[in-house]
Computed example of a mutant assay.
Amino acid sequence: MSDTPDLLSRSLDAVQRRIDAVLSAENARWTAVDPRCTPFVDTVTAITTAKGKLLRPRFCLLGHLAAGGDAADPRVLDAAAALELLHSFALLRDDVLDDSPLRRGALTAHQRHARDHRTRGMRGEARRYGEGVANLAADLAHVYADRLTRELPAPARAVWDETRIEVTVGQYLDIAVAAEGVADPELSRWIAVCKSGRYTIERPLQLGAAIAGRPDLTEAFEAYGLPLGEAFQLRDDLIDTFGDSEDTGKPTGLDVAQFKMSYLLSLAVRRDERVRALAAAPAGPRGAATMRDLLVDSGVVADVEQRITHLVDRARHALAEAPLVPRWRTELLDLTTSVAYRDR
């Protein structure tokens, strides 16, 4: 089992090289057409290379290896690279929808292009320009991701298509529920799973297994990936609400300040009159600080931590009897803890 981390690391390095090759070739291709294209393609490159964790490719590779697949299979390397580019698509679009100013400690794409618009004295509205470029860059990342999946077998392609649909519908419901001010914990939980949890863990695992020709693992990876994906997103909500922006590289408290109905906030609204009163309108920075105190005081934070523990236990139990290659089962079990209890 000593070669397990090295094999996975080498595979992840191969995925990163594949991504770099795609983006480098596209940059050269479109720069030759017109130099204006360089900062556009670079928008995809910047957000893709800044993330670093390769979490979704990691789960895709682990799903493939745990199913007995070959780490050198070019189809799984391409699928893992596609998942990372799909993640870039989702982040670019999310930052526009959330009007987030920072990502990984740097200006978000729409803010950066808006600043460029102002600096150069261009025509039109800087905000619309910046958001337009970021949205188009998100579309470009999505196209690159989809192009990498051309050689997937039909069962894997079905998983890929479902992943893209879930992310998009989840993003829509996220902003719709926030705009309506709906406090429905179960709906908020479902949106979080659909928008983030599934495409982070469950679908990448199923995609890797499908490429290995193991559709029999679909249910086992659902039983593992669904609760762990929810735990991942609940931890994300806690980090967004209570984390340190110096550690996360992005502003914290945006969901609370903008009254976005995360599971955390919707549960508190249902439970505590003080939270309901404060959440009647977007909280703003001052109200967000009060809201954080109320979330702790109401016991909601403790309940969410308890739910994360329960979800982690469910995920670990689901792997116990699954017909997986033992060393990769162990790797997945180890990853379960780091995903659910991370601090950034």
Rank of each mutant, 00 (worst) to 15 (best):
V143W: 13
M261D: 08
D247A: 14
T309E: 12
D116Q: 06
H142R: 13
G243R: 05
E305W: 12
I165C: 08
I47D: 14
P35Q: 13
L217C: 04
L102I: 04
S266R: 12
L152C: 01
A281D: 00
A25P: 00
A154H: 13
G213H: 03
A158L: 01
D240Y: 08
A178K: 04
W160F: 04
I191H: 11
H110C: 05
T290N: 08
R307W: 06
A302G: 09
D216K: 05
D174P: 09
L335T: 15
A79S: 06
I191N: 10
P153T: 01
L226H: 07
E246A: 02
S2M: 05
D146T: 12
R115H: 10
L267P: 02
T108P: 00
L23V: 14
G229P: 14
A281N: 00
A21I: 00
A192I: 03
E246D: 00
L61I: 02
A315Q: 06
S338I: 03
K260P: 01
G299D: 07
Q258V: 00
R103V: 03
T168Q: 04
R327N: 10
P215Q: 06
R327W: 11
S245M: 05
A80C: 07
G105H: 14
R235Q: 13
R235W: 08
V193I: 15
L102Y: 09
P282G: 01
A138R: 14
P35E: 15
Y144L: 15
A277M: 09
T149S: 03
A179K: 09
D6V: 05
P153V: 00
L324H: 13
S100A: 15
V76T: 10
A158S: 12
V41D: 07
I19M: 12
R118T: 10
G253I: 08
R93T: 06
F242N: 03
A220P: 09
A21E: 13
L311Y: 03
A183Q: 00
L62G: 02
A318R: 15
A192C: 03
D3A: 12
